[in-house]
């Protein structure tokens, strides 16, 4: 029996075996398996495309908090209301989303720390905006069901870090 090839030094990128046709076939087979077994969820690409369609790209991302009662962005069943929290470095946005009898959605929100900021809701049919009061509360009514994304305009008179808009991921109302 002949000994195998001496292992190449780990720090030389070119030192590995070139990929041959069988390797490529295996990798293609793997990609195919994973595509079938675990496909990118339907609509995810569209939800992202909606979310990145912002006028101003200099935004800070407000992440969905882990314990939010939401399957993020996925269409979800029968609940009449649910509460979702988003966190960014300097701002927390909590919203309660309720379906009202005319089949639109009402959104009750709180900003923390409390601040009277401009709040915009981007929907697939246009923008709805309002101002939070000094306690950080805001209400947006008659929201069409479907994709939406919150954009909170933070004041432009602060430091460079403060004058960014804060945006949430798109979620399905």
């Amino acid at each position: 029996m002949t000994p195998g090839p001496v292992p190449a030094p780990l720090d030389e990128p070119g030192s590995d075996e070139p990929i041959d046709d069988l390797d490529l076939a295996i990798l293609a087979g793997l990609a195919d398996l994973y595509r079938r077994a675990d496909p990118v969820p339907a609509g995810l690409v569209e939800r992202i495309q909606f979310a990145v369609d912002l006028d101003d790209l200099d935004v800070e991302v407000c992440r969905l908090r882990d314990d939010s009662d939401l399957v993020p962005a996925g269409a979800r069943g029968q609940e009449e209301s649910r509460t979702v929290t988003f966190d960014s470095t300097n701002l927390t946005i909590m919203i309660t989303i309720s379906v009202v009898p005319d089949d639109t959605v009402r959104l009750d929100g709180w900003l923390a720390p409390p601040a009277a900021l401009r709040v915009e809701l981007r929907t697939t049919t246009g923008h709805l905006s309002t101002d939070a009061d000094e306690r950080g509360r805001f209400v947006i009514e008659s929201v069409p069901r479907g994709l939406a994304q919150l954009v909170v305009r933070t004041p432009a008179d602060g430091t460079a870090d403060d004058d960014r808009s804060v945006v949430t991921p798109s979620i399905v109302m």
């Binding site: 995810l44 939800r47 979310a51 990145v52 912002l54 800070e60 992440r63 399957v71 962005a73 798109s170």
Partner: peptide, 20 residues
């Protein structure tokens, strides 16, 4: 899980915007 990945992937794309 899939729900978390959905969110993680979207957050990643949003974070890209100001670095683009």
């Amino acid at each position: 899980d899939a729900a978390m990945c959905d969110d993680v992937v979207q957050t990643t794309w949003l974070s890209l915007l100001r670095n683009l």
